[in-house]
């Protein structure tokens, strides 16, 4: 039983570390702030969630607390990504390699909201 739990924990530990690394890798490779948010906001969150699952199995962290932490991470991460993307767009940071921008010109029209 403990062997099975430990193997599962090990899998999540390795997967979590791998996804965290891929997130950093993506952060370095992608060209601008918006695409980089995809890497940090999704791939790295994936890594954190996997590491938390491993922590539930391996450390004295109780399952309920761990699941609540996962829930909060999943709740907070997209909000943070959105806040950063929105702030970046409003301060006028340009997008690299942009192919289409439906938001262009819309912001000036709606005034100084936000």
């Amino acid at each position: 039983m403990t062997l099975i739990a430990q193997s599962i924990a090990l899998f999540f530990l390795v997967a979590g570390t791998a996804f965290s690394l891929i997130g950093i890798f993506g952060f370095l490779r992608l060209p601008d702030v918006y695409t980089r948010l995809h890497a940090s906001g999704k791939v790295s969150v994936f890594g954190v969630v996997f590491l938390l699952i491993a922590a539930i199995l391996l450390t004295p962290l109780s399952a309920w607390k761990g699941l609540l932490l996962i829930f909060f991470v999943l709740l907070a991460a997209p909000s943070v990504s959105h806040a950063l993307a929105s702030a970046a767009y409003k301060t006028g940071i340009p997008m690299a390699r942009v192919e289409r921008d439906d938001l262009k010109g819309k912001l000036e029209k709606s005034g100084e909201e936000g």
């Binding site: 996804f19 891929i22 997130g23 890798f25 993506g26 490779r29 992608l30 060209p31 601008d32 918006y34 695409t35 995809h38 890497a39 999704k42 791939v43 969150v45 994936f46 999943l74 997008m95 690299a96 390699r97 942009v98 192919e99 289409r100 921008d101 439906d102 938001l103 262009k104």
Partner: peptide, 26 residues
């Protein structure tokens, strides 16, 4: 969606050609 999002973004990032076509849609 979360699983797919994490995996597909990870795959994109690891692709040597970096096949992204970024933009904003409504």
């Amino acid at each position: 969606d979360i699983l797919e999002g994490g995996l597909s973004t990870a795959r994109l990032v690891l692709d040597p050609k970096l096949p992204i076509h970024p933009g904003i849609i409504a």
